[in-house]
Design a protein around this nucleic acid. Structure first.
Lengths: 186, 186
DNA sequence: GTTGAAAAACCGTCCGGACGGTATAGTTAC
DNA sequence: GTAACTATACCGTCCGGACGGTTTTTCAAC
């Protein structure tokens, strides 16, 4: 379930994420996280002194991963107008394999942290703020970048709550429509 | 807090929604809902035999309200191509007063139900399915309607989790960009 | 139009269980 | 000798739900 060779702290975080993904937020208890990480409850509390500390660490790691993913996707885009918006699209619509990995992790951590205390989301709020800044400085007509960001956020929410699923064809059409929007005003 | 003259069942549902909005999902207990509804815990359990039954009722009512709101907004749009998409936009971006009322209620019920059991969301999934069908039959180029729906869903999520807030000016730009998208291919 | 009984609406208390957190005594590896 | 644990026991709290009893409403029979 969790890589037994990773160091304890990462094993705990991995186990906690996996529990939320597999069995929902209520299933994440200190005991279950410790057990799945192959550690005792006391051992977990040695590393994370409270459940809140554990959740904060999960959030911190998620924020780092999101930031890194965005930066990497951004770097992979050709320079020029709309680069940040294109990065968002690429990140939200990348191929199925390992695509949803980040989304699923984000969903799990999101929900667990928000349930305990909405203020725990602050690190990811900071990431979103930086993304918004990048979008605003993207050289696109006003509103276009934000529209694309909202659309990718919407895809995320639809996925988190399982509201509906888009067929690959629908996804392709969606992508095409958003890319056309990206070209408006050129 | 809750209209004392409404009948007990609606008072209970109102109280439960208000609790989640004001103090979060964990604060919603049978006791707190009963107290705020001006009833005893036993009395609440007379109407809703379990917490799950209470949540299911909250979801059912939300689904009705969403359906009615969409139908009303749809009817208010001029006929013709893109009508459903325009209704979505109008509903998601209507004026501040009482605008977020539905969104806030939806957020509260959403989170509470999902936390207890994701399957409870089925009624609203059905509403989303009907919206998607309306969008698909809207006469717009492929992907455009779905893009607008995703954008409004994204606005909803951003609001639910308080990820960031758009200034009125940004909202206006966003609306303009999405309306321009609506006109593509005409 | 009174009565009387059933049905509906509701009260208040109790219990079993789970969870977060504490405490402690001991163990292993460096 | 110190960091990194294990194992276990325990505490206080809270929650969902069950239960038995009580008041209020309804409504038919007389």
């Amino acid at each position: 379930m969790v890589d037994a060779h990773a160091d304890s702290r990462t094993r705990i975080l991995d186990a906690a994420e996996a529990i939320v993904q597999a069995r929902g937020v209520p299933a994440l208890t200190l005991e279950s996280a410790a057990r799945d990480a192959g550690i005792s409850k006391g051992g977990l509390l040695y590393h994370y002194a409270s459940k809140e500390a554990l959740l904060a660490a999960m959030l911190g790691r998620l924020a780092e991963v999101m930031e890194a993913d965005f930066a990497a996707t951004l770097a992979a885009q050709p320079e020029g107008r709309g680069r940040a918006a294109r990065a968002l699209l690429a990140s939200a619509l990348k191929e199925p394999v390992a695509a949803c990995v980040l989304q699923d992790r984000a969903a799990a951590v999101f929900l667990a942290a928000f349930h305990h205390d909405p203020a725990l989301l602050d690190p990811v709020r900071a990431v979103f703020a930086r993304m918004r800044a990048a979008i605003a400085a993207d050289g696109l007509p006003p509103g276009v970048g934000q529209a694309i960001m909202c659309a990718t956020d919407g895809l995320f929410m639809v996925h988190v709550f399982g509201l509906y699923t888009l067929t690959p064809a629908e996804l392709a059409d969606l992508r095409a429509a958003l890319e056309r929007l990206l070209e408006t005003g050129r």
